[in-house]
Design a protein around this nucleic acid. Sequence first.
DNA 1: TCTGGGGTCCTAGGACCC
DNA 2: TCTGGGGTCCTAGGACCC
Length: 415
Amino acid sequence: MERVILHCDANSFYASCELVDRPALRGMPFAVCGSTEERHGIVLAATREAKLRGVKTAMVNWEAKQWCPELITVAPNYQRYIYFSKRLRWMYEQYTDRVEPFGLDECWLDVSNLGVTLKDGLRIADRLRRQVREELGITISVGVSFNKAFAKLGSDMKKPDGSTVISKGNYRQKVWPLPVEELLGVGERVRRKLESRYIKTIGDLAAQSPQNMQTWLGKMGIILQRFAAGEDATPVMQSADETEIKSVGNSITAPRDMYTLEDAHCVLYVIADSVASRLREIRMRGKCVSLMVRDSQMHFFSAQKTVDYHTAQAEDIVLIATEMLHAKGFCRLLPYRSLGITVGSLQTDTRPVQTDMLGRYARQDKLGRLSQAVDHIHARYGDRAIERGLALANPLYNTIVPKTDHVVHPVGFLR
DNA sequence: TCTGGGGTCCTAGGACCC
DNA sequence: TCTGGGGTCCTAGGACCC
């Protein structure tokens, strides 16, 4: 039996949520902007009008101001977006338990368990759109198809509030003429590679042999060719099986370049504090620490180290990161534009911890209790209620707040 | 002149172990 | 002098998504 899959995409999600909360913005040129500092901030969501006019919506602030000097910038309110995202998902789950989120504002729904046809799928899509509009005050676009890749393409076709069916009867007309980069999984690099082989449309890609694609692009090549040919068989995941978190990280482009190791150390502490506290929030610990450095020429470097214990303590993370910074010769890269730390190889903090006689266990235990106390104080009296001495010593420390400024909305890709 | 942030997956080479 | 093979883990970098 044919699958019936919907892809629902909320339009200009951040901007739409802001409009619901702040109707005064209606008709005004505004954008939700991320990051603390004007110089490095970025427009996260432009007005729907900009999107409709085909103006790209992810750009740095100065660029946005050039487009539109009277632009009103709005700080993001991720708690609200998460609230809207959950409401949306709850509405989708009234139709099926197979709802797979893709970021905050997109979901695939597999409704084939209801024994429906694509035509019925379209009716569901239209009903959903109306329901979302009436109950949440935002609009979604929906693609209806027999696989996930085409459903996603469909949801891009009638914006800001429409449904599109891509069936086995019409995909050759509707999908194959599209430029290849519209396909899920084709970014700039892959597009260039394909173009050099005269593969410009999704139809061109569908016509390639899997063997050639494998040679050119490896595993990804085969997947993409299947997507293009309408042979994507990847399932929509059950709502119940939450994807496990595999890593937690933060990175920061500081308000000014970091010229000294003291500056870098300070920023690493800010980042490690944020990562560690987020790890403790989700009750995880990790043993693989990776360090990311970007120099002032925007060159990217990274290194990682796996240690033989799991931790959720900023002190451990900073220590490991700093060791790497020196061991890999990153000191020579100063000044830095950005720094980042990610902790992976996670396990839950309920797993038993190996004790030892070298004092490490005792130290971990002590640090654990200390940070627990600090977490409590932060939760009760705010993040500024208790701070590191470093905050007094280096003004850089207080200018960046990764945990609240740069919020998480992971996108699991091609599982 | 100004170039974000968080996360996942893939790849290729190397180390290590049995 | 002659120098296996497979599995697993680690590492650095690249690509993609929103």
